[in-house]
Design a protein around this nucleic acid. Structure first.
Length: 629
DNA sequence: CATTCGCGAACT
DNA sequence: AGTTCGTA
């Protein structure tokens, strides 16, 4: 039966699981996951992160500072905010508001420079911004979370924020502090399913803010006045988590110099929401009993994932702005019975999001805090060109700059995890980014190489470029965004050294090879090294070393698994050698059209012979480079 | 009100 | 394999 609704107010039963019964079984069970009634999630984000990074780097503590990206302000520290400076102010406006303003431009790659740096006069026509410094600082913070919160699940949510699921470590402390919870009393009427006894009074301490339970209550009231509602065990859990959160945050501030703001609540979206209740350098607890009054007047577009298209669609459909509005706007949102009844209609409007929104509006969020793999699956570098590219030479130039960044970042990642292998390289070019003009991409397998250099990436990227613009017969190109990236990045337990392992794991060897399997094959490095001496006779080769640059290339595992015929495999290897020859040639062409772009160079031996090749086979070679399929 | 850079995933 | 989308 569906209760009739009361106009003008979201009713209490819209929020119906705020004080769930917690039993001994709940406390003792470990795998309740998102349904754990004592679940506690935190979100911690760094205050004005990019600006803070620059302050730490420059040893600035209190002065107003902004971070610049070309002409635009992308970060404003809190001292500067006191002058009314915001993002999207013009630099000139900002300077007028604050005479002492410290202005830092983000790191950029100068053309051809191997590493990004803080240069005096940056120029978006020749430089590319690098966010690498911030990535590294971000990693330091994340490492401190992991070290300081053993047992907690930690999910990096963006460069400056992370979700932390405190449920497990909090439970440990809870059982330590209140050991009687670990024993079902002999006289418990329902055994393990008996509700826990009344919790003790709570000391909220002074390290956290508490979201008021009633709107009328203001911050000026003391915590004890504001928080009159009966204490629950979930409140205790929140407070224990708050202690843990506060300790790491203080440690981070002391050791790294970054102030953070955090929120603690029973799920991710509420943690994220209340983290910004007070900023900077503070943390906020949202008790379950405070949820309804906190949510009702809130603009729902401020909720995570409702700030985009979905939120717009909801706002437009019902012409409302707050959570309470939305709860009243459509019967479907009010009661689950109706929602399921008209699910079809709802899903026509909002797809699978209908139920999600229904739950979010009443403070429910079943999404998990899930640790991300240590390395990203993709890595890309992009450049927006205010003046669209028109010549191929420009393309090669920017590809080289992007390749330089990728090389640095990949090799950086490999310091932690050698054997990191980006399986494919993708080149993406767009025309007109404001609208949905054209956008094309091209990808190709990326060879496993121990040394991933700018040259290898740039040459492979050059090939992709050739295919991309070669196929586009649409007059003169006007590319406004160019991006180059790796996808399918994985750690290979054993890299190309262990080709035999692939065969051992079920992939058929070529017949000849199987026949004399006892015949010893050259191993590892020597395998590759031996190849050039008998390049056309060795049917078993899966890798080769370039005589020019002395780098080793091997057929991808994908290819190896699909090609079992020895002859075909030899052909594939030959193709790869040809392609590699093209690498050198593409690089040569890029240099020729862009003489300044040779700062990030290969070894001098490679350069030397390339020059030679240029003189000997110039135009013809160019012809080949541009016309080959 | 927005730019640029970046990442994952869905869709075709 | 290539394109589009959503998000920060």
């Amino acid at each position: 039966m569906i209760p009739t609704h009361q106009k003008g107010k979201a009713k209490a039963q819209d929020f119906d699981d705020l004080d769930p019964v917690v039993t001994y079984r709940h406390v003792l069970q470990q795998n309740l996951g998102v349904r754990d009634p004592l679940r506690v999630v935190g979100l911690c984000d760094s205050d004005a992160f990019y600006a803070a990074c620059e302050m730490v780097r420059l040893g600035i503590t209190d002065k107003p500072l902004v971070v610049l990206q070309w002409e635009g302000i992308i970060a404003v520290n809190y001292p500067a905010r006191k002058f009314g400076i915001t993002r999207f102010h013009k630099l000139k406006d900002a300077k007028e508001r604050c005479k002492e303003l410290i202005i830092v431009h983000v790191q950029t790659y100068k053309e051809g420079e191997a590493e990004p740096g803080y240069w005096d006069n940056v120029d978006s026509r020749t430089h590319k911004v690098s966010l690498d410094y911030y990535r590294r600082e971000s990693a330091k913070i994340l490492a401190m979370f992991k070290e300081g919160l053993p047992g907690a699940e930690i999910e990096k949510a963006s460069i400056d924020e992370a979700f932390i699921d405190f449920t497990k470590p909090v439970r440990q402390v809870l059982l330590q502090r209140y050991p009687y919870l670990a024993q079902v009393p002999p006289d418990a009427p329902n055994g393990a399913d008996t509700p826990l006894p009344e919790p003790p009074p709570i000391d909220w301490g002074t390290d956290s803010h508490l979201v008021p339970i009633n709107l009328a209550e203001t911050e000026s009231e003391t915590v004890t006045e504001v928080q009159r509602d009966p204490v629950t065990w979930h409140d205790i859990a929140l407070q224990i988590a708050a202690e843990m959160m506060h300790k790491v945050r203080v440690d981070i501030a002391n050791e790294l110099g970054y102030t953070t703001s955090a929120g603690l609540a029973r799920n991710k979206f509420l943690a994220k929401l209340c983290a910004s209740y007070r900023k900077p350098y503070s943390q906020t607890i949202l008790r379950n009993c405070a949820i309804p009054n906190y949510l009702k007047p809130l603009e729902f577009q401020k909720i995570r994932f409702l700030g985009g298209k979905l939120g717009d669609a909801l706002a437009k459909e019902y012409d409302v702005s707050t959570v309470a509005d939305l709860l009243l706007a459509d019967p479907c949102f009010r009661y689950l019975q109706i929602l399921t009844a008209c699910l079809e209609e709802m899903q026509a409007k909002f797809g699978e999001n209908a139920i999600w929104v229904y739950e979010i509006l009443r403070g429910i969020d079943r999404s998990e805090v899930k640790e991300k793999p240590a390395v990203n699956k993709s890595m890309m570098a992009a450049k927006a060109l205010q003046k669209p590219i028109t010549k191929p030479a420009d393309g090669f130039h920017w590809i080289r700059v992007l390749a330089a960044e990728l090389a640095l970042r990949l090799n950086d990642a490999r310091k932690e995890r050698p054997n990191l292998w980006p399986k494919t390289l993708v080149l993406h070019a767009s025309r007109g980014m404001s609208y949905n003009e054209t956008s094309r991409s091209k990808q190709a397998p990326f060879p496993f190489t121990k040394e991933v250099t700018v040259d290898v990436i740039a040459a492979a990227g050059g090939k992709l470029w050739k295919e991309l613009v070669g196929n586009a017969q649409t007059g003169p190109m006007k590319i406004t965004v160019l991006s180059l990236g790796f996808t399918g990045i994985e750690v290979t337990e054993e890299n190309q050294q262990s080709i035999d392992v692939f065969f051992a794991s079920g992939i058929k060897r070529p017949r000849e090879d199987r026949n004399d399997a006892s015949q010893k094959r050259p191993e590892r490095e020597t395998d590759a090294a031996a190849l050039p001496s008998r390049p056309d006779t060795d049917q078993h080769a899966t890798s080769f070393t370039c005589p020019e640059c002395h780098k080793t290339f091997s057929l991808s595992t994908k290819l190896l698994s699909s090609i079992t015929d020895a002859e075909d495999r030899a052909q594939a290897l030959a193709d790869m050698k040809n392609e590699h020859a093209d690498f050198h040639f593409a690089q040569l062409v890029a240099r020729e059209v862009e003489p300044d772009a040779d700062r990030v160079g290969p070894s001098s031996t490679s350069l030397g012979s390339s020059k030679k090749q240029k003189k000997e086979g110039g135009p013809k070679g160019i012809e080949k480079f541009f016309n080959r399929t």
